[in-house]
Structure formats: C-alpha cells, structure tokens
Design a protein around this nucleic acid. Structure first.
Lengths: 241, 241
DNA sequence: AAAGCATATGACACCGCTGTCATATACGTC
DNA sequence: GACGTATATGACAGCGGTGTCATATGCTTT
C-alpha cells in the first residue's frame, strides 16, 4: 500500500492508495466509518468486506481499488487509533506528578479515550482478543510495548522511592497492563447494556480509584490504614472530574 | 439434546444423544478429542464442524446424528470442563488456611489445571474472549459466578481481619478474576512459543507469587518492608512445589 | 431369507464471502 | 468529437462452510 500524509479533519493520518486519498472527503469518511463499525463489532477474522462496502454504500470493486485487502484497511485504522490514543496518554503524563498519580492518569485517559472514541476502543479491545500471531503481524508486540512503557514508569518510581523496592517491576507492569485492558473491557461491556449503571465517567473514576487503591496499598491490613479509603493519587486527581 | 449420565474414564459427564452415548468408546473419544482440538484452537464463531468431522474421521452426516449443531457439542464440552476445573479448585481450597493462601491456591490450581489440560484451558480462555452475549447464552454469567466466588472468600477474609477493611471487595474480586485470566492466558501463550522460558510449573509459581505479592502488599513503600520479597502465602505454600 | 429398525454415509443444495475482470463512465486534452 | 487515462461497477467463479436427505449398511427378529 502506498502511503501519503493527509490532513483529515483534526488529525494527520497515513492513507492507503493514492486513489483513496483523492476521494471526496464525504465518501472517504463513509468508508472509514463503515470500517470502524465493522472492526468495533467483529474480530478481524469475522469482519467482512461485504458488510463494509454495504455500510459505506460503495460497490465491492471500489474497495479493492482503495485497499489491497481487509488487513490493509485494518492496519490503517489501527495506526490512526494508535496515534489518537497516544495523544490521550501524552496529555495524561505529568513529569511533576508522582508515579501513582501518573498511573491513575493513564487509566483515566484510557477510559476518557474509550468514552470519546467508543468504536476505536472497541477495536482495540478486539485487537487484544486476537491471537498473538495476528497481533504481532499487525503491530509487532503491541502488548509488549505497552508493558515496557509501564515498566519504565515503575522503574523510575522505584528510583524515586515511590514504589516499593520489593515489587517486581515486570510483574507490576504486567498487572497494570492486564487490569487496564479489563477496566476498558468492563467499561465497554457496561455501555452495551441498557441499564448502564456505571457508564458515566464519574462512576468509572471511582472504579479506577478503588482498583488502584488495592494496587497501591495491597489487600493485607496496613499498620496505619488510610481512613479515607482513597489513594493519594485519587485525592490529588479529584480536580479532574 | 437428551442427557444421560455415563462414566467415561475418570469423570462422570452428561452426554448428548442416546446415539452418541451408545458409540464405541474409541470412536466417541475420537469425536471429543477432535472437538476439543477445534475449540482450543478457534473461538466458537470460527470453529467448524467440517474440521471436527475431518479430525475425528467420521462422516459429516454422523455429526448431526450425535449433536443438534456446534453449540450443542460446545455446551457439552464446556460443562465437562467446568466439572473438571471445579475439582481442581475444590482441592485447592483449605478451610484452615488464610485468605491469601487460599487465593494463591486458586491461582496455582488454575495453572495446574492449564498445564494438565492444556486444550481445556485454551477452550476456557477462548470462552472468555467470546462476546458477552454468547457467554451468557452458554453459561449464564460464568464470569459473574467466578467473581462472586472470589468475593465470598474476600469478605470472609475481611471478617477474619486478614483483608484490609478499606479494600472494596467487589473491586478486589474483579482484580483477582481479571488477573487469573491474564496469568492463564500468559501461561498458554508462553507454552505455544518454542523458547518456553516460563512454561515449567516452578517458573509460574514464581510469577504467581510476584503478582500476589503486589496484590497483598501494594506497590507503595511499606513502613516495615518484608525482606524476603515473598508473600506469607508463598512462604507457607512452598511445600507445594 | 425377509422384514424391521437403528445407525452410517456422502452427495447435494444453499449460503456468504473473497478477489477478479470485462466493461462502463468521467474527465482532461488535443 | 475523439482519444487516453483514472476510476467505478457489479457479475462472476471459486471456496469453505452448513444442514438435509435419499440411500446403504448392519443387526435382530420372525
């Protein structure tokens, strides 16, 4: 697939074939929209070009004029997802802030991202459900990357004395990564349901705080328990709501 | 599907149609084997009757003599999985033991189970990847059940003073459940890889201990840090290896 | 051996999807 | 208007799947 930079609305993305990038905005958007719908609702294996062309109301032949195949389109969407999510995470990181505050910031950013881009979030949850083999074909060890990023934060935290020296940073990164996926999944599943008890932001901020309280303080009784039941990060982060 | 109890080898299971249960053991086993292979390798949507009958070397028509459809067979396998896994968990639970020791026991049991029944473990990981809708159709809120079970243990632990009163048991159960899935997934993925750095039991016992150390003690520095870097549960549990 | 019943068998119709290709259309250029 | 090039279009062959059904097989009973 040929690539060329194009400013599409708010953010710059890498586009597939020339033909696709020359398309009138509206039509192009219809295609991307239908594709996002498809990948938000189905794993890659179950996604179908037939439904995408149907949704976008373009003839089947055109699809192959724009993309080599489904994976080509997927790659493209996935990349723009990565760019977009990276922005959220960058905004959330604060050099001045403590380690746990930054971690909380990342969790919150992930839910913000999911709430503002539900289809992209669903796509990324589906991506995590793909077989390892597929995942690394699309984005070489995306999971590894995410874990390494968290690992860096934790290591720094350990140097600053904010993370206990006894904790194994690799495991902690693994734990944080797994839980952030679970929280996002939970968020997306709950917003599917009609009841939507927790679909509002503030409900999820509370959920994140409670999960992080456990990760920060542990489940064993503390010698001097914190009476508020909130993490320091949560307390400092309250301005966010 | 008609049901009837039959003792197949080590454990009692509920069998589908009369016809299937009257089959010679060897043939029946071939079918179950092929099915387990299929569901360990593919999610339900991607599994195919064609491959199963191929693997079992039975004619396609026979399949429909034994089962209504793929879901019928899936239900049956899933149920026997549940029975089998429940046994592991029951053995792991110890009324006398402390809460964290029991939780560790469950994690270890899950990896033991995965190691001794890798295809069933893969099936159960695939099950967790299914859409919520499918999951509750097969087994009404399996995830919920698992979380409720953990919740009970934690609540008891809180009453015994072994779990900090500040922790939200619902969140803790959610965290424990999510991580147990992640650990099992990690185990299965690592045993797919040729290197297999951590595929041995003892490597995983270490992984579990490190994860649980974090959950027990938290990542924040403790006033009186434990010099060994292991959980009390891990120390008491060492006899297991 | 004929009849009756349970089970086995694989050919078959039908479906949804993919990727291709011959053909149609639009548009800029002479 | 004729030509050339880029793009549009949907019919189509091919594939792998499903569920069915007419027919075959084997075993038991008379």
């Amino acid at each position: 697939m040929t690539t060329c930079g194009v400013d599409l609305g708010e953010w710059v993305m890498i586009l597939p074939t020339e033909t696709f990038s020359n398309l009138p905005q509206q039509k192009r958007q219809r295609v991307l929209d239908a594709a996002l719908d498809e990948f938000a609702a189905h794993t890659f294996d179950n996604a179908s070009i037939a439904r995408i062309v149907d949704g976008a109301e373009i003839p089947r032949g055109s699809f192959y004029q724009y993309f080599d195949d489904l994976e080509d389109l997927y790659r493209y969407l996935f990349e723009s997802l990565g760019d977009r999510k990276a922005k959220y995470l960058k905004e959330a990181m604060d050099e001045e802030a403590g380690t746990m505050e930054n971690i909380r910031g990342m969790y919150v950013a992930a839910v913000d991202f999911a709430s503002e881009n539900p289809r992209m979030a669903a796509l990324s949850v589906n991506f995590m459900r793909e077989k390892r083999h597929f995942r690394s074909r699309i984005f070489h060890d995306f999971k590894e990357l995410s874990i390494q990023f968290l690992r860096g934060i934790l290591l720094q935290g350990q140097q600053k004395g904010e993370i206990d020296a006894c904790v194994d940073v690799d495991m902690a990164a693994f734990v944080l990564h797994s839980l952030s996926i679970s929280v996002m999944e939970h968020y997306l599943e709950s917003s599917e349901k009609p009841e939507r008890i927790l679909d509002d932001q503030s409900g999820y901020l509370q959920l994140i705080d409670r999960v992080l309280y456990i990760l920060e303080n542990g489940m064993a009784p503390r010698q001097s328990p914190d009476e508020t039941g909130q993490t320091p990060a949560a307390r400092k982060g309250e301005g966010h709501v």
